[in-house]
C-alpha cells in the first residue's frame, strides 16, 4: 500500500468520512479505488461495477460510523475491503459472475459488528436504488419527500403544496413511496437479493 497509507490513522479516516472531509474522501478514493477496481475487474466485473461497490462501501461505512455503538476493532483498510468484498459477492453472486460465495470475508470483523453490517449493506443497496428511481418521480412527489426529509411539519407541507389536509399529505406521500417501491422491486439488483436479505 505504500507511504500514503500512513498519512491518516484509521480513526482519522473514519472521522473524516463522518464529517465529509474532502481531503479524507480524496485520500480514500485515491488509495483504495484502484485496488478495488482491480479486484472487481479480475472477477469479471467492470470498472462501473467497481464504482458502485466503492460508493456502497462508503455508504455502509458512513452509516456505521454514525451508529451509537460504533467501535472499530480492525484497521481501516481491512474494514474497507471486508465490506467491499462482501458487497461484491452480494451483488454478483446471483448473476453468476462470482461462483463461490463465501461468508469468510466477514470473519475479519467481530460477530456483533457483522450482524450490524449486514443490515447496513442491505440498507445501502436500498438507498442507491431509491436514489436511482427518485429521479423518475414527479416534481410534486420529489418536493414531498424533500420536505419530509427536512422534518417539516405536516401541516406546513400541506400548506406549501396545496393539500387540503394533513391526511392528504400522508396519502400522497404513501402513494409516492409506493410508486418508488414498485420501480425498485422491478430492478434486477433488488431481485438479486436473497429472500433473507430482501426487506
Amino acid at each position: 500500500m505504500g507511504e500514503e497509507e500512513n498519512i491518516f490513522s484509521s480513526i482519522e479516516i473514519l472521522e473524516g468520512i463522518k464529517k465529509h472531509d474532502r481531503e479524507i474522501l480524496n485520500f480514500v478514493y485515491e488509495t483504495y479505488f484502484n485496488q478495488l477496481a482491480d479486484f472487481v475487474t479480475k472477477r469479471r466485473g467492470t470498472e462501473s461495477d467497481a464504482w458502485d461497490i466503492f460508493q456502497d462501501t462508503m455508504g455502509v461505512i458512513y452509516d456505521y460510523v454514525h451508529q451509537k455503538e460504533f467501535n472499530l476493532e480492525v484497521p481501516f483498510q481491512a474494514f474497507f475491503f471486508t465490506v467491499a468484498q462482501k458487497l461484491w459477492f452480494k451483488h454478483y453472486h446471483k448473476s453468476q459472475k462470482v461462483s463461490n460465495f463465501t461468508n469468510e470475508t466477514m470473519d475479519l470483523i467481530p460477530y456483533e459488528s457483522n450482524e450490524m453490517l449486514r443490515e447496513l449493506m442491505r440498507q445501502q443497496i436500498m438507498t442507491r436504488l431509491s436514489l436511482k428511481y427518485m429521479k423518475k418521480l414527479s416534481p410534486n412527489c420529489l418536493k414531498l419527500i424533500k420536505f419530509s426529509n427536512m422534518d417539516m411539519d405536516t401541516s406546513l407541507i400541506a400548506k406549501k403544496l396545496n393539500y387540503l389536509s394533513n391526511q392528504a399529505v400522508y396519502n400522497q406521500r404513501r402513494k409516492c413511496l409506493r410508486k418508488l417501491l414498485n420501480w425498485i422491486k422491478q430492478d434486477p439488483e433488488y431481485q438479486n437479493l436473497t429472500d433473507y436479505e430482501r426487506p
Partner: peptide
C-alpha cells in the same frame, strides 16, 4: 419493505 424504503428516502441523515 415500506419501512426499509422509508429509511432510504426519508429516514434519519439520509440527506
Amino acid at each position: 419493505a415500506e419501512f426499509e424504503l422509508f429509511k432510504s428516502t426519508i429516514g434519519s441523515h439520509i440527506n
